[in-house]
Design a protein around this nucleic acid. Sequence first.
DNA 1: GCCTAATTTGCATACTTATGCATCTATATT
DNA 2: AATATAGATGCATAAGTATGCAAATTAGGC
Lengths: 154, 154
Amino acid sequence: MKHQRLDAIREVLAKSMVVNQDDLRRKLRRRGIEVTQATLSRDIHELRLSKGPGGYSLPNGHRGTSVAATLEDDGPPSVEEMIESFVLRVRQAMNQVVVGTVMGGAQPVAAALDHEGWPEVVGTVAGDDTVLVICADPRRAGEVEARLRTMLES
Amino acid sequence: MKHQRLDAIREVLAKSMVVNQDDLRRKLRRRGIEVTQATLSRDIHELRLSKGPGGYSLPNGHRGTSVAATLEDDGPPSVEEMIESFVLRVRQAMNQVVVGTVMGGAQPVAAALDHEGWPEVVGTVAGDDTVLVICADPRRAGEVEARLRTMLES
DNA sequence: GCCTAATTTGCATACTTATGCATCTATATT
DNA sequence: AATATAGATGCATAAGTATGCAAATTAGGC
């Protein structure tokens, strides 16, 4: 699945330095994802990544973002901002949505989701880098996953 | 001279979108600077530019930076920060140093320089995007130029 | 289930960027 | 001034990235 690969790319980028597309290809292969450079070129375009002196990097603050640093502005951050800043991975399993974030990002993301009060969401549980979102049924979980993903891939 | 070309590259980047190195080459040629793509590749590396969906962009906030936005954090910005954020071009002429900045950047840069109280600087005059730094003699102007350039090309 | 339409992917290749090497230029030294 | 040394540049080409097209896969509709 394509979404899974995009998630994996974000994760790889958050955790390691990617020098070029072939490097990325090899790193994904270790995770069991095998595609060609051509596909990655398209993915990179889609994720709006940019390439600089330090290799590829995510558009927002994703990568080295310390939670504190990003939060220390005035207004309370919107859910969209939280998602874009912290979330790396979104997957649905039955009536649950598992959200992977940068280290330390789970609590604030869960708090933001709670505060948002989406009707499909029954509750959330947050660890250090993972938020478990509980929904009433698979259908609603699917909706939540889709919405999160939309924000993520704005 | 190389410095002049680097200055020009920063200016071009601040004012227009550069899609690729050949695009940059053509834009520089219009300004009377004629070099090959190979040289630009090296310049780009040296300026630590990064290439993303919107073409090449300067490392800091240079580009679309609104003065207000950049200043609205807590601490007073250091001269280095000012230089890196606003200054595009530095040139010496006799006992003066002409500093080109993004629109609206001249006043804050001049203020920062004044506040810094460098001994070589006799005084500054700021317009909208240009600061004129007056020194006692060409020698000191040269030192000031070099120091500014060092900050700029950190 | 089977078919159709749309999306995704790989292949081949065009386009873009980086770099080894030789040459040239500027600067310093004697 | 001539020479030595370091830096800058171009050329040719290697390395890296993007893309048209066709095949394959996926998603819906019947």
